[in-house]
Amino acid sequence: MSIVVRLGMLAVGGFLPMVAAAADLTEEQRTLVQVFDAPGHDKAAIYTAGRQWIAENFNSAKAVIEYESKDDGTIIGNGNINYPCASAWECLGKPDWTVPFTMRLEAKDERFRLTFSNVRLHWPAKINAGIRQPEFDGPVRSAKDMDKIRPKLLMFGDEINASLVTRKAGDNW
């Protein structure tokens, strides 16, 4: 286990160091896999709904999608979300943090699997209170960060499922 020293509370004559444990996660611990049921929907419908959801929820499906095969029911793309802060106070310190990731959707009749891998953190360089913080773009290292990121990413499956239902209802216009 490694130790990270961070500047903490202001004390007379300077800052007191705060010590925090930085437990590096393995790639396996940063990879999320979940299977979602989609009763009544075939592979083609799930694939189309997933592709449409990506186009509607990311800036550009063309820029996001790295590989797709309608025959296989597979879409692989690179996405990016804002860091999911636990509180307004935390967001004040991390307003420009993002979470880049690779997302893989694999469709079969009546179900699909989402896999999130290469989950990273990114923040730009900045100067705060005269202290320079360098840019960072690397793997998520702490379980605490993954615990905040995991629900946000896995929510995509529920949203894709909801778009299947909405899409089917919207086809009848």
Rank of each mutant, 00 (worst) to 15 (best):
I75G: 06
I76P: 01
G77Q: 08
G77Y: 02
G79I: 01
I81L: 11
N82L: 11
Y83F: 10
P84F: 08
P84E: 03
P84L: 06
P84S: 07
C85G: 10
C85Q: 06
C85R: 06
C85N: 14
C85D: 14
A86Q: 13
S87Q: 08
E90S: 00
L92H: 04
L92F: 02
L92S: 03
G93P: 05
G93I: 03
G93C: 03
G93K: 09
K94R: 15
P95I: 08
W97Q: 06
V99W: 01
V99M: 02
V99F: 07
P100A: 04
F101C: 10
F101I: 12
M103Y: 06
R104N: 10
L105E: 00
L105G: 04
L105M: 14
A107E: 12
A107V: 12
K108N: 14
D109Y: 13
D109K: 12
E110N: 14
R111S: 15
R111D: 09
R111H: 15
R111L: 11
F112C: 08
R113K: 15
R113M: 15
R113P: 08
T115W: 02
T115P: 05
T115G: 07
F116Y: 15
F116N: 00
S117H: 00
L121V: 01
H122G: 06
H122D: 11
W123M: 03
W123I: 03
W123C: 03
P124N: 02
P124I: 00
A125F: 03
A125T: 07
A125V: 07
A125S: 12
N128E: 14
N128D: 14
N128L: 11
N128T: 14
G130A: 11
I131A: 12
R132F: 12
P134Y: 05
P134H: 04
E135F: 07
F136H: 04
F136E: 00
D137T: 09
G138Y: 06
P139F: 09
V140C: 06
V140P: 05
